[in-house]
Design a protein around this nucleic acid. Sequence first.
DNA 1: TATGAATGAGGTTTCATTCAT
DNA 2: GATGAATGAAACCTCATTCAT
Lengths: 212, 212, 212, 212
Amino acid sequence: MTEEIKQTTRARVLEAACRLFAEKGFRDATVAEICDAANANIASVNYHFGDKEGLYDEVWRHAFAITTSAYPANGGVSENATEEDLLYAFASALLHRIFSEEETGLFAKLLYREMASPTLALEKIAEEAIFPQTRLVGQTVKKVLGDTVDDQTLVLCKHSIIGQCAFYNFSRPLRTRIMGKEALTEQELDRIARHIARFSMGGLREIMNGEL
Amino acid sequence: MTEEIKQTTRARVLEAACRLFAEKGFRDATVAEICDAANANIASVNYHFGDKEGLYDEVWRHAFAITTSAYPANGGVSENATEEDLLYAFASALLHRIFSEEETGLFAKLLYREMASPTLALEKIAEEAIFPQTRLVGQTVKKVLGDTVDDQTLVLCKHSIIGQCAFYNFSRPLRTRIMGKEALTEQELDRIARHIARFSMGGLREIMNGEL
Amino acid sequence: MTEEIKQTTRARVLEAACRLFAEKGFRDATVAEICDAANANIASVNYHFGDKEGLYDEVWRHAFAITTSAYPANGGVSENATEEDLLYAFASALLHRIFSEEETGLFAKLLYREMASPTLALEKIAEEAIFPQTRLVGQTVKKVLGDTVDDQTLVLCKHSIIGQCAFYNFSRPLRTRIMGKEALTEQELDRIARHIARFSMGGLREIMNGEL
Amino acid sequence: MTEEIKQTTRARVLEAACRLFAEKGFRDATVAEICDAANANIASVNYHFGDKEGLYDEVWRHAFAITTSAYPANGGVSENATEEDLLYAFASALLHRIFSEEETGLFAKLLYREMASPTLALEKIAEEAIFPQTRLVGQTVKKVLGDTVDDQTLVLCKHSIIGQCAFYNFSRPLRTRIMGKEALTEQELDRIARHIARFSMGGLREIMNGEL
DNA sequence: TATGAATGAGGTTTCATTCAT
DNA sequence: GATGAATGAAACCTCATTCAT
């Protein structure tokens, strides 16, 4: 008996669903397919999760828990670090989430695939998973620009920084063409994170000077 | 007889399809719905476009033609302009495409909704619609960093700039939450474009100094 | 090619549905079963009637049209007839509807089987098929009791008369036990109608005397 | 611990089933729903009653016991009462069963909802619950018409009387429309019972005269 | 005595596509 | 050049029932 079989039906279905939803999206991953992959009866989804959407909700929760525990948004850096280090830690965490080929990468894949989906329980995801991160960046931005920065500028700077990271999530299908390779080494990923941190520091300083 | 009715069936179907694919995505926009909206027979799609995917391909072509003629990637700026102006023109064009509520906005909406779609004839879209733009940015980056910049740095800088713009396309569903409003005035859009240009100039200079 | 096959798919499905809904009720008659009986594809119901409920609505309409054209509620008797003849005509029409083994009997069977059903578009059925009949009886009652009869008494008398007829619809499953036989001859049916008319005349006169 | 909880599981399930079968019918009341309402395990039905139909049988028995003990068919009137009083007592008992909003009304509701049902263990119900009542009416009819009345006339008269009462059971869904109100006061119910008794006496006398 | 996870059969609906006209 | 009736595959969901514990 393999370990796969020993898991509870619920767990097997959940894992299969994570994988298939991330791979094909909500609509294209069928209940039958998921149950098949989980070696479970097709009624399991109804029994354990109510319906397909209930399963989907649980998948989001599961993927979110895994990714945040593996890669906390603050990157494990103390708040006393230099601003560039803070930005680097943030970018590094995001990029790890995006490029991970493991379970820890499922959340970013779901986000990438379903940002456009009408089924996305967006409010909840945003509240739990996205806005805390933007607030984190906001703090760093404020450290550079000073507390007197106006709200609009603050927001624009946050978007500039997050956009640079998120780009690597949403350009997935172009990745081979864009980067010449599928997977990234840890060093390459690090190179990107350092670039984003430095580029952003330059950007922020430029903005700060303009403000004066 | 209104102009709507005088159009050929094919044209009416194509327009309805553009609208509905942009609005709902490939899977969720049904052939029946499109034909209905176009006041055409349900067999029209297969008759004129072979099948649903054939129609989809044509929709991409159509939307691309409209958007590029309305907002050329170079933003209509001469190559003699300052680097910041070039970046501004680029960002402005992209943002216009993204925020347009007219037919000219369909392409960005399709891109947003279907970047993740397995049906996307990605190669062609990328070749025609995306890479020419990144090359444009690449030229500007080179003007700032100098011709001797290494390829990897060049690519990272391009991504930093494009990512800042693309962010506004892929954050559509969060837009109300993120920006506090649905639609943007021309002035607000301009503010964003100027921000991105200046932030990017700062970023490029920082990178350039680091390179030395 | 039999005549059955030459009918349109829509007509075949409708007829099969009439029969099966009358026989088993809305829930227990399945779409698959109906389409099978009609020699039609299972998607026909969706195509021609939208969904199962749409088909059900159409079945009611169809059965109602058939039964009212075969057995008009006034029994084809002129309003100058004696009151007992009017009651007899009314009862006779209702009983014919109830005991008919042909298509003309479908409406009563549907009513019998689905009076309790939550799917019944009751308002419409009542408005079209039931209340016109009660009004008819009301007129005859007034002829006997005089125009000065109070509303409550009028209503109670109408119910007494209609109840005697309707009893034969709702006692269907007990029919063999109650009447000792399944089907009725025209003479037996006539005997019942005459009984109800006479019994009711006696009842009305008693009520009238009590009123004085 | 409330009394509700102290009851045996079997009793709780039975009560919940009575309520839900009366409310929704056999098909539409699900086993899961019943067990839920009874705060019992989903396997309880099969465990205690064999299967859903077994539970249904038990529900009929239960509801019948309750209603007959609350409203005996003879209405508690001595056989020495006048014929009209006997009819009044009979009608009153039936109408109370029909209009009761308590547990005592469950039997009539079940009858109303499931007369058409193929699951109904009709023979048993009829034998225990229905025919004793018709025999009772038959006795009264004989008292009026004399012992020499022919069988057919006797049956027709019984149906006329029972039909008037049963009408109020089977017209439930039309009740608001027909009577202008949902619930009935004791006085209104009494008014109906007296009407039926008197109307029937008139009918019987008319029939008797015709027979001569 | 009782549980609850798990199942299998079967229901309705959707939808892209086809084909005779 | 265009139609629309008809289809088949496949999707999701429901629910009574079972079985190991």
